[in-house]
């Protein structure tokens, strides 16, 4: 009954055609812009892009912040996930829900909170001046630290979710068994927990890393033009200097990274099944 291929294609193709026309074609043209040079094809756009010191700085900063956020999220994530798994089922659901919920809230709202915390009249500065530690408020906004904190808050839930589901698959008695055999907690973590949750770590890490790479709002609000990242740089290049070649190069970098991260995830998923 379901062998009528034409019928199946009639149902599936509209979605595919829509995505092709609205996504693949425009994005493809955009990506090709950096390769067009004086009527021919060349890598000049890429050479020029990386010849600019600011672009190199922004590129490296984006990678650095992405890695830092992913790494920190992993450390906090392991601690939090381990605690969640140890909870009794009822409170586990509640805590897990509270961790997932922020993902549903507007990133603008989530990032805006950091202005309240880190701003000139924010909690941190009020406390510092209040305690007389400093006469003038510190500049906390528009720093890498601010962007780092914003991104961490934005993406930490993804890491915790990945690690919790990985830890739930650890057989029940493995950890007590390791303890009985004389392993220290440190040994238990590195010899038992880490190998058994490697997959969850890679999945969470990839999600956090690519999320940080392609976030716009957080660097825009908390970094401004002082702490540019690739996405904010792209916006600036287009809006301020009408520089579509740089935009195309940045787009390519972002897509390649995001795409390879997704390939990695797919590979893990298929290796598991």
């Amino acid at each position: 009954m379901f062998r009528n291929t034409r019928e199946g294609l009639a149902l599936a193709l509209p979605a595919a055609i829509f995505s092709t026309l609205l996504f693949l074609v425009p994005v493809g043209i955009l990506l090709s812009e950096a390769f067009r040079f004086e009527g021919g094809w060349s890598l000049q756009g890429y050479i020029d892009f990386f010849a600019t010191p600011l672009n190199r700085t922004v590129f490296l900063r984006t990678l650095k912040l992405g890695a830092l956020v992913a790494g920190t999220a992993a450390v906090i994530g392991y601690a939090a996930a381990f605690c969640i798994v140890n909870l009794e089922p009822k409170s586990r659901g509640t805590v897990f829900g509270m961790i997932v919920l922020p993902l549903m809230i507007s990133p603008v709202a989530r990032t805006y909170a950091w202005i309240v915390i880190l701003g000139r009249t924010g909690i941190v500065n009020e406390t510092i001046t209040g305690l007389g530690l400093s006469d003038t408020p510190l500049r906390l906004l528009f720093t890498e630290t601010a962007v780092f904190l914003g991104l961490l808050q934005l993406f930490l839930p993804l890491m915790i979710i990945s690690l919790v589901s990985a830890m739930e698959n650890i057989p029940r008695d493995v950890i007590p068994a390791a303890r009985v055999l004389g392993a220290s907690w440190l040994a238990v973590f590195f010899k038992v927990i880490l190998p058994l949750t490697k997959e969850g770590l890679v999945i969470g890490g990839t999600l956090v890393f690519t999320g940080s790479l392609t976030a716009y709002i957080t660097p825009a609000i908390l970094g401004g033009s002082k702490v540019l990242m690739l996405e904010t740089l792209l916006y600036q290049r287009v809006n301020v200097s009408n520089d579509f070649v740089s935009a195309s190069v940045i787009a390519m970098i972002l897509i390649v990274m995001s795409f390879s991260a997704n390939l990695l995830l797919k590979k893990i998923a298929s290796a598991r099944s």
Partner: peptide
């Protein structure tokens, strides 16, 4: 093809469109 919009960062899609 249908999943592609998840992989491509939104800012690029907006600009391209």
């Amino acid at each position: 093809i249908v999943a592609a919009p998840i992989i491509v960062p939104g800012i690029i899609v907006g600009l391209a469109l």
